[in-house]
Design a protein around this nucleic acid. Structure first.
Lengths: 210, 210
DNA sequence: AGGAATACCTACCAGTCGGTACATTACTGT
DNA sequence: ACAGTAATGTACCGACTGGTAGGTATTCCT
């Protein structure tokens, strides 16, 4: 959360000829579309508009570049997730997650799906670290939602027999399934229908009229 | 659906020294765990216990080998899906799909997840054909379920305002999400909880008592 | 016994992978 | 003006990718 993020930025020497953030954005697009292993260095360099040595000097290596793009992904295209937790009712929390995912996963301005799901779902041993980093990201989301649903249960928003852990896992499964659907060609309206189907059966209090 | 499946099997010449079906099973395991692109030919050969030229002579090339393993996958580990469509009520159809998926995706005797989901979700251009073949498989399942739910609606099993297409997409999303959860380490009991959550809210008639 | 047919293994192919050495260029501080 | 520092582009590295040529071994059919 500090300046350590993306290189200290030196005051002397030849200045960098490209915008790191924009380059990172381009790299994200490539990883998003092709996955960690499917994205080659020439692919990345071409999209980023730089050469390999510049990439390595600025971002370390392919693995570190990927992790930085994921950070960017969480702060931009996927920025709907954690803020959704702050809604007043569990219904609204889940509603914002599902609808946000529908919009983000099928946004025509971005590759389809979710890079945290499809970035390294099945891969060779050499990508194990990246794969497990993504697993940890997904799990972190599930844990955060679970905690929020426990709070909802304590508040009486969710019924006494509700199981926050199971509900959180269910919602994350739907979100991840929506990502798969998006990569298969589902559009935003179709994903919103999935969201609606989930919401129609949500056990928590409705915010609407009364 | 005929003998064209896996080479005509000649009557003359040196007999094949390995069991094609067993070799295919081993190849499936590798593709399942590493995905289409993450599985290298040495990986496959080692698991199958044969050399590259034997692999090519028997199965064509990597792409054709993959497609044959998918065929095997649908007939074996994933054999729960289409038969589930033949249950009497939509509830039972969905129940068998979800519970079958929970067992299959988290079977400790097999790699976690579903090869049709994780085999080629995001990949380089060279794997486009395989990726689209898997998309088609997923879509075929969705269409089949949709058709079955339309029948359920016509029978009065599902309410008149039910939308079979949306419900089918929703169930497929859950199934695919369960596969992602399994690759992330979820066990069978955890996946069954997801299945239960879906079933508790299913709009179709319950088979139980009455 | 001898051909014909097929599978097997070793060794190899061109192309691509992630990653880097090195010389050059562009800037800052004195 | 000049040293110090850092980014750039070219050209390369060994390892690995999917795929194959070609010689050898094992079988069936006559």
């Amino acid at each position: 959360m500090s300046a350590t993020g993306v290189t200290p930025a030196p005051t002397v020497g030849r200045p960098r000829a490209f915008d790191m953030e924009k380059a990172l954005q381009k790299a994200l697009e490539v990883f998003w579309r092709k996955g960690y292993e499917g994205a080659s260095l020439p692919d990345l360099c071409e999209a980023m508009g730089i050469n390999k040595p510049s990439l390595y000097a600025a971002f370390g290596n392919k693995e570190q570049l990927f992790l930085k793009t994921i950070e960017l992904y969480e702060n931009r295209p996927c920025a709907f997730f954690y803020p959704a937790l702050e809604r007043i009712t569990s219904y609204e929390v889940v509603q914002h997650m599902l609808c946000g995912a529908a919009s983000a996963n099928a946004d025509p301005d971005n590759p389809p799906g979710c890079v945290i799901v499809q970035g390294a779902l099945a891969c060779s041993e050499s990508a194990t670290f990246v794969k497990e980093a993504l697993i940890a990201k997904r799990r972190a989301g599930e844990v955060a939602l679970c905690t929020r649903l426990e709070q909802a249960k304590a508040e009486g928003d969710l019924p006494a027999n509700a199981e926050p852990a199971a509900l959180a896992r269910y919602i994350l499964a739907v979100l991840q399934g929506m990502a798969v659907q998006a990569t298969s060609g589902a559009n935003c309206a179709e994903l919103k229908q999935v969201a609606e189907t989930v919401l129609a059966a949500w056990p928590g209090k409705r915010p609407e009229l009364e």
